[in-house]
Design a protein around this nucleic acid. Structure first.
Lengths: 190, 190
DNA sequence: CGCGCGATTGAGTAATTTCAAATCTAGTGG
DNA sequence: CCACTAGATTTGAAATTACTCAATCGCGCG
C-alpha cells in the first residue's frame, strides 16, 4: 500500500527514498467500515483523505431529503470537504464509505508544512489541483450540454470501475436524475 | 492597472518591488474589443488570461447550437481553456468578449518558469487553484441541489456586478435553463 | 424615426418527477 | 440447500415542470 501511494506521487514528481519517507511520515492510515462517516455537516474539517482501497461518496441532502452526490472516491483519489478545509468553515457535506475502505489522512497543517519544506511536493499538489479543476469544469459542461443518457455514457467511459462498486441509484444521484429516470434510459437502450 | 494586478497577487502573498517587476515582466497586456475571440474550438492554447477590465465568457455550443456558459470572467478573474492549456490538447470552448476588455497574457511556459524560480508564486498559483476548485464544487452542488430560481438568487448574491454587465439570456445559459424559463421565474417573483 | 437586440408572454409539446407497486437479487440464518 | 429479508431495480400512470416555437413588447443606438 505504501508503494502504491508512492507510485501515485511519482506519476508527477520523482522522489528519493528519504524524500518519500519524509512525506509519508506526515500521513496517518485509517481503516473504515461500510457506512462509516468521515465527515458530517457542521464538523470542523482538518484532513484531506487519500484513498488506498474501497470507495467513498461525498454528498448533500436537499430540502426534500434527496441525496446529491458531489464526488465519488476510489483507489487513487483524494477526497474531503474542500470548502470547509480550505476556508476553515464547518462542513456542509456528508462523507461516508460505500464499502470498507482504507485511507491516508493528511492534515491541512501538515500539507502546508510539507509544501513549504519541499518545493517538489508543492508542485505535486499544484498539479493535482489543476487536474481536479479541469475535471470539475468538464463535469459542469457535461451537466449543462448533455442529456442524462449522454452523461451516463460519459461517466461509464471515464470510470468503468465505478459501476462495479456503486449501485445505480447513486449513479443517478451523481448524474442529477431520479433513479427511475435512469432506469428507463437504461432499458430504452440506444 | 499594474498596481491593481499587484494587489491581486498580494492578497495571497507579499512581494518586494523587484519580485513584482520580475513577475510582471512575464505578462503581456492585450486590448480586446466586444465580440472578439481569444479562443475557438480547435485552437492550440498557450496562455492563461488575467482580466484587468471588461467581461468575457467561456462557452460551448451543443448539437442543437445552443450556448452553454462554462465561466464568466470580470476584473480580477483568470480565464482560459484550462483543459486545453494543461493537457496540451486543442481547445474545445469559445472564449470571447462580452464588452471591450483588457487582459494580461501569461503563457504556460512562463508560468512554470516563474513557479520554479520563485517559490512564493507557486504558492500563489496553488492557492488560486484550490480556491477555483472549491468554487466549481459549489457550482456543481448548486446545479444538483437547487432549482433554477434558487440558482439565480445564489448567483445574484455571489456576483451582483455580473448582472450589470451581462444580458439575462447569458445568465440563463450559465444557470442551465432557457431564457424563457428564466424570464418566467423572474416575473412569478418568489 | 426605425432598426435590432433583448426580454416577455402564450400555447402546445416533450421530458422528468413523483408516488405506488411489483420484481429482482444477494446475503443471512435455519 | 432453501426460505427469508433488505436493498436495489424496474414499471406504470398521473402530475408537474421546462422546453420549443412564435409573436409581441420595450428600449437604446444610429
Amino acid at each position: 500500500m505504501k508503494s502504491f501511494f508512492r507510485q501515485h506521487i511519482e506519476k508527477i514528481i520523482s522522489l528519493t527514498d528519504e524524500e518519500f519517507d519524509f512525506i509519508y511520515s506526515h500521513f496517518t492510515p485509517k481503516k473504515l467500515r461500510k457506512h462509516q462517516f468521515l465527515i458530517e455537516p457542521g464538523d470542523s474539517v482538518v484532513n484531506d483523505y487519500f484513498v488506498l482501497s474501497g470507495c467513498l461518496k461525498a454528498y448533500q441532502l436537499d430540502k426534500n431529503g434527496k441525496m446529491h452526490i458531489l464526488q465519488f472516491a476510489m483507489q487513487d483519489w483524494w477526497i474531503t470537504d474542500y470548502q470547509a478545509l480550505y476556508k476553515g468553515i464547518n462542513a456542509t457535506i456528508f462523507l461516508d464509505c460505500i464499502e470498507d475502505s482504507e485511507v491516508l489522512c493528511l492534515s491541512l497543517h501538515d500539507r502546508e508544512k510539507l509544501c513549504s519544506e519541499l518545493h517538489k511536493i508543492e508542485f505535486f499538489f499544484r498539479k493535482k489541483s489543476n487536474g481536479g479543476y479541469v475535471a470539475l469544469q468538464q463535469r459542469i459542461l457535461s451537466l449543462l450540454t448533455s442529456s442524462a443518457s449522454e452523461r451516463y455514457e460519459q461517466l461509464l467511459q471515464l470510470y468503468p470501475q465505478l459501476f462495479q462498486k456503486v449501485p445505480k441509484q447513486l449513479i443517478a444521484a451523481y448524474l442529477g436524475v431520479s433513479r427511475e429516470t435512469l432506469s428507463r434510459l437504461h432499458s430504452q437502450a440506444k
